[in-house]
Amino acid sequence: MIEDFLAGDLTAVDEALRKAAAAEIMPRFRQLAAHEIVEKNGPHDLVTVADRLAEQHLTASLTALLPGSRVVGEEAVHADPSVLEALRGDDPVWIVDPVDGTRQFVHGDPGFATLVCLAHRGELLASWTYAPALERMATAVRGGGARLDGVPMRSGSPEPGRELTVAISHFDFTTDEEKRVLGRLGTHGVAPRPCGSAGLEYLNVARGALDATAFSWENPWDHAAGLLLVAEAGGASGTVAGEPFRIAGGNAMPFASARDAATLRHILALLAS
């Protein structure tokens, strides 16, 4: 069934993202009331009514598109961590981040996205990165390439000798040890900066506007869509242990993605030094 779904017209998924954003996210952009914003695990980890309602909207529409599928969404997992176990099961799974970059959304910054990835038994099959305030849609299908607004996209390689730009875990979300490890990228030839929306940073890598990312957390909803997007654009990713990133968890941290394999090796070597 999942093979037939992937072989068909996937624009219905695009439309599901656009409808969820139009109904639940964009009407609240720059219109949020104070009571519609809640801290989850600290002052920098926010959730809004838009996150919750958009995830509910997508859960209904995506499972209707692919009967028998399940949803692992950021807000559902926050409410019930056992939802993550679906990633290890036999059913197709939609991995959903309704508003990736909630802090940006709350502050009226358009740099946020809705992320969806379809996975099966740990394999990433198709992904959607939709930035509604920027009106951009990036898609990827395993073995079928990556596209931005319908146009094929390639990550390319950094210009030889040029300083590498790397988006890293924002220090508001890292431990002292994670800061120390990520600090290894502060060396000659590398220019690290704090990340914004993880999904949009992956898009930047996939379109060649950013050379690499290095992250110290493994929440699947933050990474699944972007990792497939980068891979299908010609990029590469892996953990500091030299292993592929496992979407179900248990990865050695940190891990990185990059425009090409050589850049990935360089970034991982610095992180492991």
Rank of each mutant, 00 (worst) to 15 (best):
I2L: 13
E3F: 05
A7G: 15
A7C: 11
G8M: 15
L10N: 09
T11I: 14
A12V: 14
D14N: 13
D14A: 12
A16S: 12
K19C: 07
K19G: 10
A20V: 04
A22K: 09
P27L: 15
R28K: 13
Q31P: 04
L32S: 07
A33G: 11
E36V: 07
N41G: 09
G42H: 06
L46A: 10
T48D: 05
V49D: 03
V49M: 12
A54Q: 04
A54S: 09
S61Q: 05
A64W: 08
G68K: 05
G73Y: 01
D80W: 06
P81M: 10
S82T: 15
L84S: 15
L84R: 15
A86S: 14
D90R: 03
P92V: 02
V93K: 00
I95M: 07
F105P: 01
V106F: 03
H107I: 06
D109C: 12
D109W: 14
D109M: 08
G111W: 05
G111A: 12
F112Q: 04
L115W: 08
V116L: 02
C117W: 00
C117V: 08
L118N: 01
H120K: 06
E123P: 06
E123L: 14
A126S: 14
S127H: 05
T129V: 15
L134M: 12
L134R: 12
L134Q: 11
L134Y: 08
R136A: 13
T139Y: 00
V141Q: 11
R142Y: 04
G143Q: 06
G145T: 06
G145C: 08
A146R: 05
L148A: 11
D149P: 03
G150T: 08
V151N: 04
M153T: 11
G156D: 13
P158A: 09
P160D: 07
G161M: 04
L164V: 13
V166W: 01
A167M: 06
A167E: 06
I168R: 00
I168D: 03
D172E: 11
G183Y: 14
R184Y: 07
L185E: 14
G186W: 14
H188G: 08
H188D: 07
C195P: 02
S197F: 11
G199Y: 00
N204F: 08
N204W: 07
L210M: 12
D211I: 04
A212E: 06
A214V: 11
E218K: 08
H223A: 03
H223G: 05
L229S: 02
V230G: 00
V230R: 01
V230L: 05
V230Q: 00
V230A: 05
A233T: 02
G235F: 03
V240I: 15
V240G: 07
V240N: 11
E243F: 12
P244G: 13
R246L: 08
F255G: 01
A256T: 05
S257G: 07
D260L: 02
D260T: 06
T263N: 06
T263F: 03
T263W: 04
I267A: 09
I267G: 01
A269M: 14
A269H: 09
S273A: 15
S273N: 15
